[in-house]
């Protein structure tokens, strides 16, 4: 879990990991591989890093089911897209994810027709479909109601069993609900790392960030 005030560099950190931004200095290592400055498509396909963006980032005029289907891992080259068939296995995987994110009843709807919270879930579902080794969620609860936030927390807790997850978050109640390790960023520097119970008592963290809560 990464937290910090606005402008701390949280999203920039995610951009560096996923290849959206190239670093001017330093290197990014993942699983022992140097992935610094590689194309986003390579980082996601080869190194299996999935990312949910801040604010839902979907394929609007395509059905919910197809949004998930496009994200399914292992069919992203031209040739693979031509030979791919929606077989029973793919059908089951898509169906399972739709259940997981609670959108099974709306699978034929265009993504544009969903509510804001549902769109956030759909994008989480797309990232799950990538079967990533590392799952990056940038503000997954932004703009959600309290009930939706709690449901998202449950989703992420379930995902924690099988994936490594980095979450960028602002909602402290949510952080308390799901976090194990918390990193606090401020102006591009790590100012504190540790369990949330320790971090929230740190005077420096309180000064730059938590006093607003």
């Amino acid at each position: 879990m990464v937290i910090g005030p606005n402008g701390a560099g949280k999203t920039t950190l995610m951009d560096l990991i996923t290849g959206k931004t190239r670093p001017t200095r330093g290197r990014v290592y993942f699983d022992g591989h140097n992935i610094t400055g590689l194309a986003p498509s390579k980082i996601s396909a080869k190194y299996r890093i999935g990312r949910k963006f801040q604010g839902p980032n979907l394929f609007e005029n395509i059905s919910v089911r197809e949004n998930i289907e496009i994200a399914l891992h292992g069919h992203s080259t031209v040739l693979r897209t031509l030979t791919y068939r929606r077989d029973a296995d793919a059908e089951a995987r898509i169906g399972g994810i739709l259940e997981q994110i609670g959108l099974a009843g709306k699978s034929e709807m265009n993504a544009a027709a969903l509510s804001h919270g549902e769109r956030q879930w759909l994008e989480i579902g797309m990232v799950i479909a990538q079967e990533p080794k590392l799952l990056i969620l940038d503000e997954p609860t932004a703009g959600m109601t309290v009930a939706e936030t709690a449901k998202t927390g449950e989703m992420i807790r379930a995902l924690k069993e099988r994936h490594t997850i980095i979450v960028v978050e602002h909602d402290m109640a949510f952080v308390r609900q799901v976090a194990e390790n918390v990193t606090v960023l401020h102006q591009g520097e790590i100012i504190k790392e540790g369990l949330f119970s320790e971090v929230e008592k740190d005077p420096e963290v309180i000064r730059v960030y938590l006093q607003d809560f």
């Binding site: 996923t18 959206k20 194309a39 986003p40 498509s41 996601s44 396909a45 080869k46 999935g50 990312r51 963006f53 980032n57 979907l58 394929f59 609007e60 005029n61 395509i62 197809e66 289907e69 496009i70 994200a71 891992h73 069919h75 992203s76 080259t77 031209v78 693979r80 897209t81 031509l82 791919y84 797309m126 990538q130």
Partner: peptide, 28 residues
């Protein structure tokens, strides 16, 4: 109707998103 066609529509809808799903849109 194939996955290739769906990928094309995804390029139309949101090319940037597609690159983070492991696709290189230029080839398509």
């Amino acid at each position: 109707g194939s996955r290739f066609g769906k990928t094309l529509r995804s390029i139309r809808e949101n090319e940037m998103r597609l690159t983070f799903l492991g696709y290189d849109p230029a080839f398509f």
